[in-house]
Design a protein around this nucleic acid. Structure first.
Lengths: 177, 177
DNA sequence: GTCTATATTGTGATAGAC
DNA sequence: GTCTATCACAATATAGAC
């Protein structure tokens, strides 16, 4: 099959469980039943493997941030889209948000950092207000949507039911005020 | 002065900024203006430095979890106490919640894992209900309180004003439903 | 495409002088 | 209490055969 895709699937799993720095090329190679040198035929570096794993999700996140920036989305639509995004990329979130070294690595290689993109979404939730109180509520609502979604996936079978989605959205909207 | 305390202050700062694994003993020694060997006179290992940094905050967190388990606290008191705890330990949170290797290390050395303690607080917020909807709301409210507090500290001068505390508490309580 | 072997660097940690 | 010197090991990455 597609060896590159196999490598990504294994790396994704190991990065999520042990962290990026906590996972060696040798770990990935062992799980694949091969040697480190074989991996370097498919990817030039460990960082490239990380990039390949995160490219698509981060592009989707950037698109969401762009839609937030446009100001055309209401809070309900925006939080709903964020909940769906979170559900789809659940496994990757610990990878991105955990190790500061990973964040530094991504910041080097991306046009917009994940932190900047989150900022854009939160600013939209605050409806552009610069009042600290509004920004606090917006960031709390953002976090509520994210953690609520993770909780729902943990409690269920790994997929987000429409009922749970409704509960999360209502919770985040209440937090937003 | 107290060299051990100096080491902890520097390590706390570096761990928070670069992560536990992203910070070497040499990094800490350099910031202190000394050598790695000097550090090993004061602490037996890098993990011991981490333990020393986290011992007090984790004990406070365990106490909060215990009070939550007792069932004597209302949601408002519990969230308020959690907000205050978060404000006091703000710098340390990325250290604990980030690297999976750190979590594994702590799980080995502690009677109760941070995850278990969070679970206890969330269960109390859900008032012991096992319904997924209640647990989702409780976890969302917990996250809202945490991130709201971090947001308030970032927006302010590093301290939590009574006004912002009120906003965060109200936000988390609304999320809880 | 994958292997063996290895270069290279960084890291946690220790020995022993001062 | 702090130093110099060093060990042991793990990690990323490369060279070159097959």
């Amino acid at each position: 099959m597609d060896t590159k895709a196999q490598i990504l699937a294994i790396a994704r799993d190991l990065f999520a469980r042990q962290g990026y720095r906590g996972t060696s090329i040798a770990d990935i190679a062992r799980a694949l039943g091969t040697t480190p040198a074989a991996l370097y035929y498919h990817y030039r570096s460990k960082a490239d493997v990380l990039d390949a794993i995160l490219a698509e999700p981060l592009a989707a996140y950037a698109e969401l941030a762009e839609r937030a920036r446009s100001g055309k989305l209401g809070a309900e639509e925006l939080l709903g889209a964020f909940i769906d995004f979170t559900a789809e990329t659940r496994q990757l979130m610990p990878v991105v948000s955990s190790d500061p070294a990973v964040r530094a690595l991504l910041d080097e290689r991306l046009p917009h950092t994940p932190a900047e993109m989150a900022e854009a979404i939160i600013a939209a939730l605050a409806r552009g207000s610069a009042e600290p109180e509004r920004l606090i509520e917006a960031r709390a609502a953002y976090a509520a949507a994210k953690e609520g979604t993770v909780a729902a996936l943990d409690l269920g079978d790994g997929t987000l039911s429409p009922e749970h989605r409704k509960v999360i959205l209502a919770t985040a909207l209440r937090a937003l005020g």
